[in-house]
Design a binder for these strands. Structure first.
Lengths: 239, 239
DNA sequence: CGTCATGTTGAATATCATCAACCACGGTGG
DNA sequence: CCACCGTGGTTGATGATATTCAACATGACG
């Protein structure tokens, strides 16, 4: 099992990988661990590497000068981190570990040097980046609905689907983030989140105990439009 | 002037392009015109090509089954379209021309085939995609602020900056979208947009006549955090 | 000239934010 | 073991803000 295959599996891509005689590209990939609460990178730092989440939960945050912050995404297993840094050669948001994490690093510049040209890996990065955009768009789609309960319900549906995609339970899970983070992500206050969760619970749709969520009526939690499903047809590289 | 250089200029990237003896890659790029109101692609259609906007204004829209829609972005000159389609091999949103448009097409699959491997172009796509993510994140950042006038003000600041980046006036411009579209993008109703613009006008910060905007006190319109500036340091390919 | 889409403005209502009190849990230290 | 404290979470009362519904104005277009 090469690390390239690891990456491939993480991204849930069914590439037919060519056997690799030259072990050298493996050196590009390394694992790196972070403790809960640690920052992976901060806004403004020089961009050096992309990350792919092996396990753990994180959040990416945008801060303005007045100190208010907005949560942009909650990356988890298989998600790509740091792609927004390519353009200006600096990371443009903060990324912080919500739990202990294990990340795979991809040194971006070295990937582009002619010697490392690697069609499979490039395709994977394209796919991962594309998925990243789709996910963010999905996040924006969450605020289509005006009512706070609907937003929270969709958020739960989205999380449920993401866990399912990874093979975990779709009905019982622990939220890794605080009410404040959820609120910041959904454009609501933490009190409104709490109230919405309570409302959904008394309606019998979910049960809530702090971060412990049980989905009782999944059919009533509607996914946001265009939630990224698995790819339907891959471009398999010629054998 | 090759079309590759066109693309390069459009993306405002200061690559040092290697002179190209083989003219064949040029065939990959074609221009395509659209009339105002036409759809470039619709959600669910098979993904075939990426587009780069040469001129004109567009909007990308997410629709759910109930028919409500959310505007995700307002692409303009130099912006990349369709990148979100790579992952599932289908476009995941609708894109519609707000004005007459001229787009450059980039057939994605052919770009990846070994014969067409092209470091410069790939770097450009990475950069454009990265910029795209940064722009979308910026859009999400618009809803950090609670007050509607602040959101509208930031939106205007963002548009102003985008026009400036293209060499147009930063103080006088025509908005290409309706109040409804602005509202959908900012998560507000069209009436609130109208009211907010009126408030900003009576405060002497702008003047408004339907879509004709004049910025009178630009220092009072604050840009959203991390608005994508021009790249600060490019990776020039080795000569 | 009439019609339609777009934009503006007003009044009433619903919804969310704010402020505040309280609870539950985990950790620390006596 | 228990008192203490801090963080995170819930719930209530109040007020600010945006939505809704509605009427009207304006410009584009046949």
């Amino acid at each position: 099992m090469t690390i390239l295959q690891d990456v491939c599996n993480l991204l849930r891509l069914n590439f037919a990988l060519k056997p690799r005689t030259k072990g050298e590209p493996e050196l590009l990939f390394q694992h790196r661990q972070f403790k809960a609460g640690e920052h992976i990178y901060r806004m403004g730092q020089p961009f050096t590497v992309l990350y792919i989440v092996q396990y753990g939960f994180l959040k990416t945050v945008l801060r303005n000068t007045e100190g208010d912050e907005r949560v942009l995404s909650f990356p988890m297993q298989g998600d790509l981190l740091g792609f927004d840094g390519i353009y200006r050669n600096r990371y443009t948001s903060d990324t912080e570990a919500l739990t202990d994490c294990d990340l795979i690093t991809l040194p971006f510049k070295q990937l582009l040097t002619p010697g490392h040209a690697n069609g499979e890996l490039e395709q994977m990065i394209y796919l991962a980046a594309s998925r990243e955009i789709a996910l963010e768009r999905c996040g924006m789609g969450l605020s289509i609905t005006v009512k706070s309960e609907a937003r929270v319900a969709r958020f739960l549906a989205m999380q449920s689907k993401r866990y399912t995609n990874l093979g975990y339970s779709s009905k019982n899970f622990l939220l890794p983030m605080t009410r404040r983070d959820m609120g910041s992500y959904l454009g609501l206050t933490l009190e409104t989140i709490s109230r919405s969760l309570s409302t959904l619970a008394t309606a019998g749709i979910i049960s809530v105990n702090r971060r412990d969520i049980h989905i009782l009526r999944p059919e009533l939690l509607i996914l946001p439009p265009n939630f990224p499903a698995l790819p339907e047809e891959m471009n398999k590289p010629a054998a």
